[in-house]
Design a protein around this nucleic acid. Structure first.
Lengths: 312, 312
DNA sequence: TCACCCTTGAAAGATATTTTCGGGTCGGTG
DNA sequence: CACCGACCCGAAAATATCTTTCAAGGGTGA
């Protein structure tokens, strides 16, 4: 690591202070150690600083002097005694300490959301939970299956995607993406139409079913039809042992995180499903790069005029 | 004194957003979010700051100006744009960030996806990137704004949500969720119908626009109409300085992660948007718990028979 | 091409920090 | 008991740092 603090602390005036490095987090300890050698006023300052780093970091020298009922000079002297070139640097260290304390407190989130959780906690918990889902899904994804699915997609004549409810949106997301790189893809959320269309499929086509539970009849049915017609079938599900996998050539498993009353399954399953869908998309885009790149650029161009001018 | 730069956000009319809390650790994210709206010089400063928080924290205004080849004024302007009252405060935050990084783990791996990346790498990179987006969005989310939006939603007579393309799916996702807990919500992706419906809104209603760029005319227009009709308006966008915020009472900012050729903006923006939407949903569910809980249970019941018996 | 507005840095102005300086207190000593 | 010296302390001056103002330069659209 390079010495960030090597920046000549510009006190050429014989400022000695070699032995005490700026001390990042050991401040409280240092205060205790040095307290005996401090004068009364300085102790008050040191105490305030050690007691509420965050609060003190927000104060100017004058403010801290007032708070402790002392003078600016004393505050500076205290900072010096603690090993910093001046108050400014003590303040910086204090800010760092405060940040560390804060972040240290964070990991202690139990991710169950209660009815009376403050909104900030809700945000933290949801974010944490979705991150977890992503990590789990990525870890549990069978890259061989994924690769096979990508290959099938890249070479497909047409692709149908089935999904209902929240999964229906994921299906549409995939479809939108595939269309953007020039593939022919449709999303179906109407079970009847889905089956009707599935009948049209044949070898070389691809059918994808997205269902968290793996047991959504309305989605399984069209996949079964496609399967029987000889299309390559893919299932994206959170239950690799569920009915839908019977008719799937390739199964892509999403992770299921705990769900609770305030956080229905739909919420966390969606995150994993979307990751899988993104992987499929990028995989296909890679395989068909020659065609995909210009298509992506073109679709971007086509939309440009729909955006109001930004400032710069 | 013509406040061109007033206080960073040139939205005098409806957009409130005064209380941008100085942002603790979300700085890198904020830099990325705001970078597009920055001038060249400011970008240089922002880059330096995001690239080496520890180093920059040790520098004075003059030092940082020299390092980036700009002037003190520009440095201060950048600090302001990032949401701090001045450079001093930015510096404090920087120190905090540095401390956190030090105690935390390795900064970041380069997550650019190449055409010839093996599929396993694609999965890992995508997952990492989306996790990052979640963390950044969560850190950068203004909980006051979020809380206000939740309150508005919880008490709304009806809610309209506007979104087009990928954001349209997010809009639908939110709508589905709200409907599940008994709220009246509609998602509109047809610009004409959206405006037609927006005209119906009045005080006590809520309109939500979802647009990553913040400049999608087809989404801004209905929000403007709703705004003028006196409805409470909310914008979910990755560009807090964009046109859409003019007409938004509450702005919820999503983080923008780097995008590249193989990973269009739509992909990463969606992740952040969904997190925000989830937060809104859970928030509303909390507030209306008495009504929401039975509604959730009921919708679950209603779907049960649509699932085939699971094997195990 | 011209007018306009935005961007930018230099320098003036305002704050904050550091240093200086002298009054005050305390303990020891004649 | 009075005196002396050392040291602690804060007010204010001196300095450093940060913020604001202002005018010149540069790009853009009419």
């Amino acid at each position: 690591m390079k010495e960030i603090f090597g920046n000549g602390n510009g006190n050429g005036s014989g400022g000695v202070r070699r032995s005490t490095p700026p001390a990042p987090a050991a401040l409280a300890a240092k205060v205790r150690t040095l307290a005996p050698s401090m004068t009364r006023s300085m102790q008050r300052v040191a105490e305030a600083v050690a007691g509420d780093p965050a609060g003190c970091a927000a104060l100017t020298v004058t403010g801290l002097a007032e708070l402790t009922g002392t003078s600016e000079a004393t505050v500076v002297r205290t900072a010096r005694l603690l090993g910093y070139p001046g108050y400014r640097d003590l303040r910086l260290a204090l800010a760092g300490l405060a940040a560390q304390q804060q972040s240290g407190r964070a990991p202690a989130i139990t991710t169950d959301i209660a009815v009376d959780d403050p909104i900030a906690d809700v945000v933290a918990k949801l974010a944490y939970d979705e991150q977890q889902t992503l990590a789990d899904t990525a870890a549990g994804l069978d890259t061989a299956q994924l690769g096979a699915a990508v290959s099938a997609l890249a070479g497909a004549r047409r692709t149908d995607v089935y999904g209902i409810g929240a999964s229906g949106l994921v299906a549409q997301d995939l479809t939108q993406k595939l269309l953007r790189i020039g593939l022919i893809a449709h999303a179906h959320s109407d079970p009847h139409l889905a089956v009707t269309n599935a009948v049209q499929l044949r070898a070389g086509d691809v059918a994808i079913a997205i269902t968290h539970s793996g047991s959504t009849g309305d989605v399984i049915e069209p996949l079964r039809v496609a399967f029987e017609r000889g299309a390559t079938t893919v299932a994206i599900t959170g239950r690799p042992d569920s009915s839908v996998t019977q008719y799937a050539d390739h199964v892509l498993t999403t992770s299921t995180s705990r769900e609770s009353e305030l956080r229905p399954a739909a919420m966390s399953s969606r995150t994993g499903q979307l990751l899988v869908v993104d992987c499929l998309f990028v995989g296909v885009a890679q395989r068909t790069y020659e065609a995909a790149a210009p298509a992506l650029a073109a679709s971007y161009e086509a939309l440009a005029h729909r955006h109001r001018n930004l400032r710069r």
